[in-house]
Design a binder for these strands. Sequence first.
DNA 1: TAGATTGTTAATCGATTAACAATC
DNA 2: TAGATTGTTAATCGATTAACAATC
Lengths: 213, 213
Amino acid sequence: MRWKKISDAVIRRLPLYLRVLDELASDPNTQLISSQELGVRAGVGPALVRKDLAWFGEFGKQGVGYEVEFLRDELRRILNLDQEIKVAIVGAGSLGAAFARYTHKRYSDDSSFNLNIVALFDNDPEKIGAQIDGIPVYGSEELKDKVEELDLQMAIIAVPAEYAQVAADQLVAAGVKAILNFAPVKLTVPEGVHLASADLSLELQRLAYYLRD
Amino acid sequence: MRWKKISDAVIRRLPLYLRVLDELASDPNTQLISSQELGVRAGVGPALVRKDLAWFGEFGKQGVGYEVEFLRDELRRILNLDQEIKVAIVGAGSLGAAFARYTHKRYSDDSSFNLNIVALFDNDPEKIGAQIDGIPVYGSEELKDKVEELDLQMAIIAVPAEYAQVAADQLVAAGVKAILNFAPVKLTVPEGVHLASADLSLELQRLAYYLRD
DNA sequence: TAGATTGTTAATCGATTAACAATC
DNA sequence: TAGATTGTTAATCGATTAACAATC
C-alpha cells in the first residue's frame, strides 16, 4: 500500500484521531462515531476529519458514521503501529532515563502502544552496562551494531545540545530513519531521514510572548 | 507596546531567530546579519524573515542588514524575555525532575535565558519538602498560595495523563496564563490561557508513519 | 555613485471550510 | 421512505514566496 505525497499536516492529525478511538474502544456503548463527534474530541473540524480519512480510503458509511474498532485498526495500520517498533534513546542522563521509564511503562500497560524502548546509549562508563527499568545501556560505539542486531527503527536524542548533531550523524550512519530530537538545536539530516522536534525551550519562549496580554 | 493579532506561525519563528542571534552574539566577527543568512541558519526563507520582523518594527538597514546585538535585544523584548520569568513544574516524578535539572542548569549557565524553574509541586508526601537541584517541592494544595507568593507566571505539566486536566484546572484557578503540557492528553483551558504541548507519543506515532518509505 | 539588502505589495501556494449529491 | 452522514468538489482563507522600489 503506497500513498503518495500526503501532507504532513494530515499525518499529524492521524495520531489525534487514533487517540480518541483508543479511548472510545473501551466503551461498549460507542461502536459508531461521526466525523462531527470525532472532530470535537480531537479538536478538528468535521469536514477536515472526513477529508483526512478520505486520503486513505472509504472508511465510513453514509448516514451512519465510522465504526470505532474498524477505523482504529485502519489508522493503526496506516501509521505502521500494527507492528512493534523498536526505539533507542541516545543519552542516559536524567531526561533519557525519564523517557525510557515513561515510554516503557506505556508499552507494558497499553497493549496497542507498539512503540517499545529497547536500548539506551551513553558515553559515561559509569552508566554503560547498567539497566534502567530493565532496559540496557550500551556504549555509543556499539550503536551501529545494536541498530542492526535489535532492528532499531527509531531513536530519541536526549543528549546535551553540543552532542546532538553527533548523535544524529551516528544514528543516520547506522540506518535509523526517524529521530525525535529533544536537544535545543536544529539538526541536519539527509533526505529520507525524518525528524521530529520536541524543543522545550522554543515552546517556553513562544509562550513567554503571550504573557503580555 | 501592543501588537494586535499577529499570527502564531510568526511567533513560533521568533525564538528560532533569537537562538541564531544568541549564537552569533558571542562571535565578534559577526556584527551584522542579512535576512538571507539569518534565514539559512534558522531554516526559514529570507523573505519570510523580513516579513516576520517587519510586524514589530523596522530593525534593519537597507543595503546592510540587521545588527546582531540590536536585533537580539529587540527579539528578547518582544518575547518578554528581557525579564526573569518564574516557572513551576507540576509533577516531581522522573520527568518533572529531569526538566527541573535541565532548565535550571540552562538558567544558571546562560545569563540571557530568563526562564527560571523555582518550584515543583507533587502529591507524594515522600517528595514534598525535599529539593531537586535546589528547587523546593511543595504539596499541590499550596499551589495557589505559591503562585502568588513567588509570582509564578508559567507552568510545565509533567504528571500522568489522568491528572493532567486536574493540574491544568488548578493552575488556571491560581492565575497561571501559560502552560506547557507533556501529558498525552488534550487539555481544555479557558480563553486567555495559552497552551503549548510537547506530546511525545503523538510525535513518535507521526514518525512511525514515515517508516514505510 | 554602485552594490546590496531592506520593507512592503502583489502573486502564488496550500490548507481548511462550506456545500451538497450520493447513499446507507 | 425519511433522516443522517459520508466522500468530494468548489469556495475561502491564510501563509509563504516573488518581486521591486526605497535607501543605506
